[in-house]
Nucleic acid binder design. Structure first.
Lengths: 146, 146
DNA sequence: TATAAATAGTTACCTAGGTAAGTAAAGGGA
DNA sequence: TCCCTTTACTTACCTAGGTAACTATTTATA
């Protein structure tokens, strides 16, 4: 098994997708990292930054940056919680209004990006990736416990 | 099909792998992007920067940076070609000597990263990723021709 | 042959994400 | 209760990779 090739394929695919996402979002002044935050809080509702970075598996510092830019653009609000350390992130009315447009564009791009790659294979791929990520995660947890 | 989840899985996997690669290379003062260049010229021999960036699907500017850092570390030389625009990148004796050590560490990490993920699935995954990348590529070529 | 177009590489500047170190609030134990 | 540890977030700085615009060659064309 050529691991280099496998890892390279994953990496390249990741970059290609992010590139396409950025192209589609550019007219709206958004970038892929911001979109991923907007997408999550749209689905899950208000969350703390910790919950967001855990959910998206991103470290705290990049999350701070992404949120701060969304705040500056008026798409998100940071609401202090009862625990004064935490900040709940919630969508503004402006973002709520624009969201359907963004979503439509992203959906269109997603379908283009996966055109010519059969649905059955998409499911297989998702399954394999999930399994690998799970194995990786378990392994890393074990390492940390040492 | 939830494309968000699929794309997110690919992206996360890519980041995890790069992270592990960087951890392993840190003692040698190398980073993943530099390793990918060293790996390629070790396999393929001397190449121009253009050939390198095409092969690794990376734009020219990041390749310039990566190569320049390798030059500064003394692992690579830029040899002018007959065509005075191009620069052939070749490994130095120092890198040639250190390479087996780096390779051993990377191999060990690769095997750890894929532990608990069966060989059969690795091959399936590689196949699916290649197919998808190919479909994506064909599609993008078509768009450019418009 | 003179000039325009294409090509290889670089520079400047942007986002994405990582670590290390710092701040402020919350919790836990002597 | 006081102090120490943990936790949420921030700041500063690093690499990775992208685009736009530039320089210097080479190639193609009028």
């Amino acid at each position: 098994m050529n691991h280099h090739l496998l890892f390279h394929s994953v990496h390249q695919l990741s970059r290609q997708i992010m590139k396409q996402t950025n192209i589609v979002l550019q007219p709206y002044g958004l970038y892929s990292a911001q979109w991923s935050v907007l997408y999550v809080i749209k689905q899950k509702g208000s969350m703390t930054q910790k919950e967001l970075s855990d959910y998206l598996s991103v470290e705290a510092p990049p999350m701070t940056r992404t949120v701060q830019r969304l705040v500056k653009q008026g798409y998100v609000r940071q609401m202090p919680g009862e625990d004064k350390r935490v900040k709940f992130i919630e969508m503004t009315e402006l973002a709520e209004k624009e969201y359907p447009i963004w979503e439509k564009e992203i959906k269109k791009m997603n379908e283009k990006a996966i055109e010519g790659f059969p649905k059955v294979h998409q499911h297989e791929l998702q399954q394999l990736l999930s399994n690998w990520l799970y194995a990786l995660d378990s392994h890393q947890r074990k390492e940390e416990d040492k």
